[in-house]
Design a protein around this nucleic acid. Structure first.
Lengths: 215, 215
DNA sequence: CCTGGTATGTGCAAGAATTCACAATCATTT
DNA sequence: AAATGATTGTGAATTCTTGCACATACCAGG
């Protein structure tokens, strides 16, 4: 890549992903140009932040004018490597699992579920609306070329989370997105992102209270 | 509060919430003591970080010994104000909404859904397993003392997200947790936390690729 | 009651990330 | 073709965050 290999702040990547949301909307609306100021306002960040984040990867704007929406989005997709399809597998097809598998936004952004697993015998063999058939958790095997998946998503209950993670890793998966309440231990050579809503709620509760406290 | 009113890093609050997860487990297992080193390892942070985070709020440990699990958890709950019940309302009871309303972990941590809304006529009037009856989105009203809610959760499709947010705000809600793909604009005097999984996936995809790239 | 072992609490230094502020650049108008 | 106005790209200043390193404090055992 054209990456200036100097250190890129971790938060920069997440923000760049964030920028793509309004851009997608502007593209649909056929808006041609956008300024760092406008984009920043929509994402609740500082305009200089937007420009600096992008500058780690190249010069995508035109001075005095702004950024071309289509081009910038395309550059961002290249940066994030979301300009190709990524194959996902899911472990746990309860409400949360189904919500993800059926989420059209993920598909639109190139994230496609190609396998679904569950430990509950009642669910195994069932066909999901997306066309996938639920397989037993224990059958997660080395991912083959054809239907192989690259990212594992865990939406099981806490009891099965570690087992699911282990299976995914044995299957050669190098990245896991974990929604279960169980904090999966970072295994060697495998990226794990934990998503925990209740932390977000704790955060809101804390700030709500401290605002009240100050008033 | 006993808060040393010097500035507390924003990340500190999220980490403190994070620390409570392993602590809950140790409490169940009746483990009495825990060191900052052990807790840090479980949360993938630096031990000094744990101690410094806690030190913003008081001295909870014993030198030479460590932290008492029960006491520390109780202190953390006081800090996060999760030592009381918070009432939530949800807008959108698709798979994601149901997953949240039925999530026992949230309830265990004091987050209780007291109202559910949806725009889909087929869902309105239905009773959820938790006992809540789905009401029309348009009926979100000023939250009364009795069944009033303090935090609004949005799990609608993008088309209804902003409307839901507006209604919540009109109802006096000061904090919103938004799961919809639509980026809700930060309204005056109302906290908004956006949860977007696809950003996490973008993040994983990026790092997966850059690891490959370097090998 | 002293000594050794252990783990906290924290001042300070090092390191990151953010924001400022301005030179650089380009379209447009006169 | 020069002046104007707009907005980028980025070095430098600033602010925020993390981690080291050690004084401090406590328990246990002799």
């Amino acid at each position: 890549m054209t990456t200036k290999d100097s250190k890129i702040p971790g938060a920069t990547i997440e923000r760049i992903a964030l920028y793509s949301r309004p851009l997608e909307k502007f593209l649909e609306q056929e808006t041609e140009l956008i300024s760092s100021e406008r984009l920043a306002a929509l994402c609740n960040v500082n305009p200089a932040q937007v420009r600096k984040d992008l500058s780690y990867f190249g010069e995508f704007g035109v001075r005095g004018i702004g950024y071309n929406v289509r081009d910038l989005l395309s550059e961002i997709r290249k940066i994030l490597v979301s300009d190709r399809e990524w194959k996902l597998a899911i472990a746990g097809v309860g409400n949360m699992g189904k919500a993800l598998v059926e989420n059209v936004n993920l598909l639109k952004r190139g994230y496609k579920f190609v396998a679904a697993f569950d430990s509950n015998p009642e669910r195994i063999g069932k066909r999901l609306p997306s066309g996938l058939t639920v397989q037993p958790l224990t059958s997660i095997g080395p991912s083959k070329e054809e239907s192989g998946f690259e990212i594992g998503v865990i939406t099981t209950g806490p009891a099965y989370a570690q087992a699911a993670a282990d299976s995914f890793i044995r299957a050669g998966v190098r990245a896991i997105l974990n929604f279960s309440a169980f904090q999966v231990r970072q295994p060697e050579g495998c990226l794990v992102e934990n998503v925990d809503f209740s932390i977000k709620l704790d955060d809101l509760a804390y700030h709500l209270s401290s605002i009240r406290g100050k008033k």
